[in-house]
């Protein structure tokens, strides 16, 4: 990056260059974002669809515009890849993500905002404008399609950046899961019972910790809540495992209430995932009962696994 061509006396430029540096030195598997060479107030980004959602495996590109008063004023976001959750080529209303512009604070950054955006993908739009409420199947189709080619947009220089970001994300993001989710989670639950259990508790802790903001709410716990989640997400970003992890969930404003009065499902999921969750839980319980029976009969691990498979 040719730093000398920018006015380093300009505090916004200084700050943005630092964010670029920070972004490059702490890369994430969940997103990638870089400014255009000729204008550091214009960024391109791509986010990975969050795991255990219909967006999993998707690579969604977008554009960020930083205001001259950055970081006193918030960046604007716009998606370029069809995703079924946010309109493309339409500025995302930051209010949806609880980033009320009047409450934006300079301690937030492009990174914070991208993490928040990822967390908001699987939330229920609740009719929020600028949002789309496509069916899960349609979103899944779009997720598959999003990997095929990056969007065509803007100048050749911008396109080059988009293509680079796409290559990077492709190398990081696991493919879209193709399996029937119910079947998949069945395997999952028999194989990874303990693990699921423990990560469940973790999620529970996060969900309990975060206050249930209504989507149009005033408060902005999101930034932090999301940040807390980063390390966890990074650990789980295990390329090669295309399994659908039933127990994982992105705690997000708006869905927390629904989660809370369904504790018996054990797997906390946003509302639109409920059907699959119920199916998975039903199957799991059936299997558990079978296993228990077998276990009582044979009381041996070897036997258990042979019968269970």
């Amino acid at each position: 990056m040719a730093e000398d061509k920018y006015n380093l006396k300009n505090p916004a430029v200084k700050r943005i260059l630092q964010e670029v540096k920070e972004m490059q030195s702490n890369p994430s598997d969940d997103f990638m974002s870089l400014p255009l060479e000729e204008n550091i107030f214009e960024w391109q980004f791509a986010i990975r669809g969050p795991s255990d959602t219909e967006f999993e495996g998707g690579i969604y590109h977008g554009r960020i515009q930083l205001p001259a008063e950055y970081p006193f004023k918030p960046p604007s976001f716009m998606l370029l890849t069809s995703n079924g959750r946010f309109e493309t080529q339409t500025k995302i209303c930051l209010s949806i993500s609880n980033h009320h512009p009047e409450h934006w604070q300079p301690s937030w950054s492009v990174r914070t905002a991208l993490v928040a955006l990822i967390a908001f993908m699987p939330t229920n739009p609740n009719g929020a404008l600028g949002s789309l409420d496509y069916k899960k199947e349609e979103r899944r189709v779009l997720a598959v399609k999003s990997r095929e080619a990056p969007p065509r947009f803007g100048t050749p220089e911008r396109q080059k950046l988009i293509d680079e970001i796409h290559e990077y994300m492709l190398s990081r993001a696991p493919p879209v899961p193709q399996l029937n989710p119910a079947q998949d989670s069945e395997e999952q639950n028999t194989n990874r019972e303990g693990e699921a259990q423990s990560s469940l508790q973790e999620d529970g802790a996060i969900a309990a910790h975060s206050n249930p903001d209504p989507v149009d709410g005033e408060n902005l716990a999101v930034g932090d809540r999301v940040i807390e989640e980063v390390p966890e997400a990074a650990v789980d970003a295990n390329p090669g495992t295309a399994e659908l992890r039933v127990s994982r969930e992105i705690p997000a404003g708006g869905s927390s209430d629904q989660l809370l009065h369904k504790p018996e499902t054990r797997a906390q999921k946003p509302a639109d995932d409920r059907l699959f969750t119920w199916a998975a839980v039903g199957l799991t319980i059936a299997i558990m009962v079978l296993l228990l029976k077998k276990f009582m009969k044979s009381s041996g691990y070897g036997a258990l696994f042979m019968d269970g498979s």
Binding site: Q65, P74, S76, M78, S82, E87, T88, Q89, T90, K91, C93, L94, S95, P101, E102, L129, G130, F153, G154
Partner: peptide, 23 residues
Amino acid sequence: GQLPDEQTASQFEDWANFGDDDI
């Protein structure tokens, strides 16, 4: 937001008329 995805870049350079911006 109803505009089609194929909209050209120049058309959408103008992304000013938005809730947040208005506020």
